[in-house]
Design a protein around this nucleic acid. Structure first.
Lengths: 240, 240
DNA sequence: CGGAAACTTGAAACCTTTCAAGAGTCGTGG
DNA sequence: CCACGACTCTTGAAAGGTTTCAAGTTTCCG
């Protein structure tokens, strides 16, 4: 609680994400306790790493601004994008088990983040019992997210892309951004990698959605024009 | 600690899985404390539910014997098998977040299990600090498992099936069973559902592995004959 | 403004699915 | 103990969705 930059310092209690991030569900007093251990990290630029595969687990990370991608590298050196992370979202749970990262995380654009240090994690859970529940909830959410991802990969290209867009839209909206006009962060190549589609298929399907008037595509920016149809596509209802 | 069936009662400290299940990493004294809250449940028969989609989260479940499958039902009523569970494995983490289940779990054969009740979860973590770490580790493992599943779905049929078999083999071996001769639990239909392959493709690919002498297939029973080749397939190395 | 990177788009190739028919397996009852 | 029926599995052939390949077009950034 000794801000080094009084003017600029954002702490948990005055952070816009405190209802979705680490402090979710905590009382004002508990948030103040939490601030003691949460570290505000410096800014990263596009392509810089939050952590690399094999790094020791240093703590849970909350994205404050910008986007990140989580990538897994297999034996053959192929890169698989595992997750995309928006402001207000937390990453690092996968590394708790073995206390080291099995993925790399890197900035998709300029990014800032906070960290709940690993060595404090245990102690702070005991100091703030509510936090334990919240950490477990976040971990549980991470399982659900990953399961949803698996389920979508099993559907045809159209549904897969629609599911991605609808999911992103919800996540942006939930965190206070526009759910109708947002950046997908990924290039077509990366999006294809994430959804297990060829670059060409992503491009074609996106164009098809645009032709039908369901959305407007401008590079990485998407404007959702007909969310209901997209949600029907996700649900598997056929649309001419 | 008041066994109702002194002769038959298996408690954590004398359970064969206590190095992989809830008690993993706990001292003898801690295991005794844990036993106080872990409930031994009755036996289920094939097709009976451990819990159903929408049920309130009653606690984490550890399979003591038999196999279970975790299935998700989407809006259209399609069934997606999310996970297969072996003896000594834990399920239920996905339900912590919303305190209710989004999947159903049911016995693939005769099955017995233990439960760490939800209402005790918080308290027991405070009584046994080591358990908190272990619960977090198990949750973290669950994320890793689900991620691995997603990654395998992205590969061709051959690799996908090989990955499933090698994974199952490792998991059986890790829990003290034979890693070379085991049951896949699933029918071809279910295995196809799980791996996102048509029933026919599962059958064909399995037959192909058998023809090449990598394994012996007898209904649901598999005997691994050449684990090294299978692992090469998983890793993506081509094999004539 | 120019070059590199990202994206679009068509056509052929390919893996997997679907459809369908037949063989095998299991459990129950005569 | 064998027969029967139901379910499961195998296997072939055709259909289909995606990928791959490749050649343009656009966009981005120095």
């Amino acid at each position: 609680m000794t801000p080094t930059q009084p003017e600029l310092q954002v702490t948990c209690h005055n952070c816009g994400f405190n209802s979705v991030c680490f402090p979710r569900g905590l009382s004002k007093e508990e948030i103040i306790q939490l601030e003691d251990v949460v570290q505000r990290r410096k800014i990263l630029h596009k392509g810089e790493f939050l952590f690399r595969n094999g790094d020791p687990f240093r703590g849970l990370i909350a994205i404050k601004s910008g986007m990140a991608k989580l990538v897994f590298h297999n034996e053959q050196g192929e890169e698989h994008i595992v997750q995309i992370l928006l402001p207000g979202e937390i990453l690092g749970f996968g590394a708790i088990s073995k206390q080291k990262h099995h993925c790399s995380a890197l900035a998709l654009d300029t990014l800032s983040y906070c960290e709940l240090p690993a060595e404090q994690l245990h102690r702070i859970c005991f100091r703030i019992p509510t936090l334990l529940d919240e950490i477990l909830r976040h971990a549980s959410d991470a399982i659900g997210t990953q399961r949803t991802q698996t389920l979508y990969i099993k559907k045809p290209a159209e549904q897969r892309l629609a599911a991605f867009l609808v999911d992103l839209s919800h996540r942006y909206a939930y965190r206070g951004f526009s759910g109708d006009h947002f950046s997908i962060g990924f290039t077509r190549q990366e999006l294809g990698n994430y959804l297990d589609l060829a670059l060409a298929t992503v491009s074609r399907t996106l164009k098809q959605f645009e032709k039908k008037g369901w959305l407007e595509v401008k590079g990485k920016w998407i404007r959702i024009l007909d969310k209901e149809v997209l949600e029907k596509i996700v649900a598997g209802e056929k649309t001419g």
